[in-house]
Every structure is written in C-alpha cells, then in structure tokens.
Design a protein around this nucleic acid. Structure first.
Lengths: 301, 301
DNA sequence: CAACTCATTCGAATTGTTCGAACATGCCGC
DNA sequence: GCGGCATGTTCGAACAATTCGAATGAGTTG
C-alpha cells in the first residue's frame, strides 16, 4: 500500500488538532485506529514520522516533510475530484474564446467575472485574432467560441449568430497631409498615402484583406493597438473601429476624415462548431449574445 | 472515501493495458475487483468514467480528465514517498551552499554532478556571497555549508576547516594611467585613483572592507563580474583573484601591477554550523575538502 | 455461427481495519 | 512528591469492506 491519501489526511488532522486523540475525535474513529494507520505508513516508508520520546507525539523532520508536501497533494486531489465531477456534469475542462481584434476587451471582463462567480472549474483562455484568424481558430479547434468578422467560411461545420456590425472610421494623425483636406476622401486621395493594415492571423483559411486598397503602399502590423500607434505617429492612414476612433479623436490624437459613400461596416458573428456543446460553451453563447454586452462597440442589426 | 491514489493507479493500469482484464492481471487481482473499485469512484464522484456501451470499456471525457491529471498526482505521491524516505535516512530535504564570490563556479559543477548521481532527493541551492556575507548566511541559517574568506566570527557556533588561500593581483585597464607606471605600487600611487570595491552582502555581522584604502574614492559594485567589468572599462582599479586576473591579463584586457611588499592573500575556510549534520552536508563537506577541487583558484595551505 | 474476449453480477470468503478496554508513560497542579 | 489527567500504544475480538470465483450476457472476429 504505497502511500494513501487517507494517510496524509490523518497526518494533517493530527497536526491541526495537536494530538492523536483529538484527531481521532475529528475523524470519528478510535485513537488506536490512527496509531495503526501511522505505523502502517512508517513501515511502508521505512521512516519514523513521530518522535514518541515525550508525552505527546511530535513530528520528526521526515514527518514534517510528508505532512507539508502531503497537504499539497491533498489539495490537488480535492481539486481533481471537483474537476472530474464538473466535466462529468458537462462542463468542459477548458474553453477558448477567440475575439476579433477590432473589439475592446473591457466589455468582456464583466462576463468573465460572472462566469467565475459560478464557481465552475472550466479554465477560460482568451485569444485575439484578426480577420479570418478567428474563423480559422474556430474551425481548426484552437478556439471553441469566436466573435468573428465577415462571413463564415463554407463547409467548416460552423454555426453562427449575428451580433451586429462595427462601423469603421477613417483616421489620420493631426499632422498628416490628409487632415487638411476638407472634403470627403475618394480612392484617388488614398493611393498616394501609406496605409497601416493589420496582418491576418489565419493559418489555414484563405487570407482576407481589409482596410487597404490595392497598389497602396502599406505598413503591416500585428494588432489593433499597433495600428493605432502607427497611425498616431503619422506612419500611415487607415480605418479604425468607431469606438476606438471616437476616443482618439476626442483626445485630439487623431483626426477623422469623411469617406465618399459613407463609412464601411463589418458584420460580427458569434460562432461555434456544430456538434455536442459543453455547458460552459452554452453559457458563454447566451451571455455574449445578450444585446448590450458590446453596446459600446457594436451597433445592433 | 473521497478519491484514493489506488483508484487512480487502477485507472492508469486500465488505460495502459487497454482493458479491465489485462489491468487486473497486471495488478494481480480479479477483474471483478476492478469493476467494484471503479464503480466505487464513480459513485463518489457522481461521474461516469467509462462508456460501457461497446464491448470494451472506453474512457469518457470525465474519465480521461481524471486519468490524465491523476497520473500527475500519482507521480507526485511517489516522489513525496521517496523524499520522506530520504529525509528519514538523514538526507536533508534541501541544502544551501554559500560560496565566496571571489571563487569561480566551474570547479563546483563536477561536484554537483557527482552528488546528483547519488540519486538523492536533496535539493541543492547555491548562493554567492562576498566577504562577511558567507559567514553571515551560515550563522543566520540562510546557508548550511559555506566557503568563506577571512576568519570566522567568534561565538556563532561555527566549525571550520582551512582550504587554502587566494592570492590577489592588482590590475588596471590597459589604458589606465597606472598601467604606464613601471614600478611596484605604493599606497601613495593608489590614493589618487578610484577603487572598484565589492559591497559586503552581510546583513547581521559587522561589515568588513577589502580591496580598498581609506580616503580613496571608490565605486561599489555587487559582485566579482561587475568589478571585473568596471575595471576593464577603466572606471577604477583594484585587486582581483589570481585565477581571474591571469585569464584577463593573458587576453590583454587588463594589465597587472606589482605591489610593494607582495600580493595580499585571503584565507578560505570551509565552514558549517555545529550540531547535528545531515548526510548531504556531510557528503559535501568531504567532497569540497578534497584537495584539488579548487586547485585552479586556491593555493594549498 | 462458433470461439473468443470482455465487463458485470452475485454470494461466499478473506483480508485488513477498527474498536474497546487495559496498559504504560509523561505532565501538571496541589 | 503524589494523585489525577491526558496522552499514545498494545492486544484480541468484531467488523466491514474488498476480493474472489463462477456464472452471465454482450460484443467482436474469423
């Protein structure tokens, strides 16, 4: 019987209660039972765990090691039991959310908080992807639930639900030449200026492009914050989601330009794989579909 | 019976052998015994661990979680048992070695390697201290065995053994004014130049000073590599242990200066606290006292 | 479809664990 | 210094959980 958790629990009780007798009481067994159990471990480990010279038994160094580290094991065992129970109840051990990079993280935090309050063992992972990246992550199993822009790739076994759309506003740095052009921009105005574009993170699906026109010189960056920084620095021009653009324009760090024919929009979908869904996925699907979660960033419809 | 290691071991065997029957064979028990045990866990956890629809039982997701993470627990339990056994056998759970900062680490590595080959669970921690720092670490219990320079502080209950002495060579950067002075240096020559000194790491014992003269301007650094770098950069002058100085002088990065009255020496001691010693301490005491370990750096006697 | 392997069920048997009382020891207050 | 008090241990008896073995039913393979 090479070490049992029960034995570790006994040592724990003895230490907490201070004596075999009290520990036995807590555990609802006779003191002699504990003596027997302890002797059992000592024989198994070839180690004296208690110093019996005095009146009451004291832990030896070896006993102390077993006790201290054993507590870690007990905790881990408890956690594992919990987790198993929850998985059996339909709660995934982990769930990965892929969020389109043009969305802010802030609105997500209360949702996460609410989920954690449920006390479920499901470990949440958050990732940001841009353009086709979210669809790709979902289709390839790297994510379980995605908020993705544009249309779903066909034949990937995905189900979707429209969340609304994000409006893109064309912005340039205050010191940029285009900032002085007091009329709506046309294609011709843009071709002469470098565009800042976000690289698509998709690895499998065909790449998509957004925010730039062919022939236009471009600076490719990895994510929205980088794009913002680049545009603020005057390194290039481009469209930014309205929630972000408004903040920056108000602060005077960017200037908004009108666009001939109105601002472009990107439709956002909540998406998940077809098939058996765990309860955490179900929960997040409901929570994120609620209108208002991304009210700041997404326009209904 | 809130989850037992034995149960996890059974799951492990079932997975490895592929069936209840073969697992039972490996464990030397009847198959029905495993069935019983598994049902026991399932009841306890309120979780189906096996999918019994087919001919042979397959793990459910919950079962898989319990199996995978349970293996970690089993390993940890095994390791804990080992460690306890070793501590009971007199091997400390951990041992901290404090090495005087003027010594190289290289000669220590084969010794550590030899220790690791013993297969003991004792975790070794290595720390570097300078001047009184090693004595201090030892006396305050922050270290168990030290290689320290100078004389042991009185009344701290320490035992020592002389290892030998380190010779200090006065060095300056090639471009330093003192490099051009072609005669042995005296006190007067030094007072005009900034000295690079190593800060004493002692926190409790009275601080000691080394390598500098009063009134001399000085740059204080934390360790030997910093001191070396500072001297190479010409930021100051000072003595370096011979093993280091020779290397640098040979490489042309420093110039050696003679000293009126010969080079100073620092005696090094192997030191440990009086009282009950564990077997790892004993082992290292023997290993480090062997002549030749630090032959490169320490001169016998 | 027959032979095989597999997991489960059931009652009986066994094994290890628990109990309770008696004992030995160390500690404290009077 | 001595009687209580609490401690941990020992021992045989009682117990209960676990294990076994044989029987059963179900699935796979040639």
């Amino acid at each position: 019987m090479p070490l049992t958790l029960e034995a570790l629990a006994i040592l724990d009780a003895i230490d907490r209660k201070g004596s075999f007798a009290r520990a036995a009481e807590e555990l609802g067994r006779a003191p002699s039972s504990l003596t027997y159990a302890v002797q059992q471990i000592e024989a198994e480990l070839d180690a004296l765990l208690f110093d019996r010279s005095g009146h009451r038994a004291r832990f030896t160094p070896a006993g102390r090691v077993l006790l201290d580290e054993g507590r870690g094991l007990l905790g881990a065992a408890q956690a594992l039991a919990d987790k198993t129970r929850q998985v059996a109840g339909g709660w995934e051990p982990q769930l990965t959310l892929a969020v389109e990079g043009i969305l802010p993280v802030a609105p997500l935090l209360p949702v996460l908080d609410a989920f954690y309050r449920l006390g479920r063992a499901t470990e949440i992972r958050l990732r940001h992807d841009v353009l086709a990246g979210s669809w790709d992550a979902l289709a390839s199993g790297c994510a379980d639930l995605a908020i993705a822009g544009g249309e779903a790739p066909a034949g990937a076994g995905l189900r979707t639900r429209v969340l609304g759309s994000v409006e893109f506003v064309f912005c340039v740095a205050p010191q940029h030449p285009l900032a002085r052009l007091n009329q709506p921009l046309g294609q011709a105005d843009l071709a002469a200026h470098r565009a800042v574009v976000i690289a698509d993170t998709a690895r499998n699906l065909p790449l998509r492009s957004a925010g730039w026109l062919k022939q236009q010189a471009r600076l490719t960056v990895a994510d929205l914050p980088s794009k913002l920084a680049a545009q603020q620095a005057g390194l290039g021009v481009g469209s930014l989601p309205r929630w972000l653009a408004e903040r920056e324009v108000a602060a005077g760090r960017l200037v908004r330009c009108e666009w001939t024919g109105g601002n472009p929009r990107e439709t956002l979908h909540l998406a998940w794989r077809n098939g058996e869904a765990g309860r955490a996925l179900e929960w997040f699907r409901r929570a994120l579909a609620k209108p208002g979660v991304f009210a700041e960033a997404i326009d209904a419809g």
